[in-house]
Amino acid sequence: MGEIGYDVAHLLGTSILLVSFALLYQRRLTSLINAFAVQSVLLAAAAAWQGWIQASPHLYLTALIALVLKAVVIPVALHRIIARLGIHRTIERVLGVASTLALAVGLVALSLALVLPLAGEAAALTREDLALALSVVLLALLMMISRRNAIGQVVGFMSLENGLILAAIGVKGMPLVVEMSVAFAVMVAFIIFGVFFFQIRERFDSLDVQYLERFRGEGDR
């Protein structure tokens, strides 16, 4: 199993990272959500593959949760929100594509430099997975701070969670209950964000979070 198992897992992990890059430069919200859905499908595939090579059936359940929840339910819901709010044509201002991508490459290099020597004794597979997962997490954070639109930030948050799951499935013996609770937490966060979108929209006629700044309870600054 060794060689091919390692190669496929590596391929899937790298694809997830590649989609993270794609997420960074999407300008339209719809394509952003689609890219996120693709990432989630890849994550589900990676989890299923890990379940196969580690012979741990509970990872299939993880894959199923990722597929249903993050590849289907959340993207569809986000699409509907965008349609109801009438912002599906909105073009988001992103930091310059070139500079963002350059920064992202730097972050990937950093995580490789950090993880590869640290986990020297761990299995090669775990090591690569950890480096990829850390890169995904850092790119998702970068995305959260480079987006102004609340939906963009939520997608960034979800992508960050994808990175965490990727790290979790790479480690042998991660109990299912952890993944379940993470998935549940994401679900709850999504619901709260959904309610929040409509509330912001109702008050400010925009999802741009900078309108929120004026309404903090710290006096008239």
Binding site: L114, M144, I145
Partner: peptide, 22 residues
Amino acid sequence: LTIRRYLMLMFATLVTLLAIMA
């Protein structure tokens, strides 16, 4: 600061610490 600035500060701190570790 704005929310994004706070996120940026946290991000910068995280990246700096990771860089030190590396």
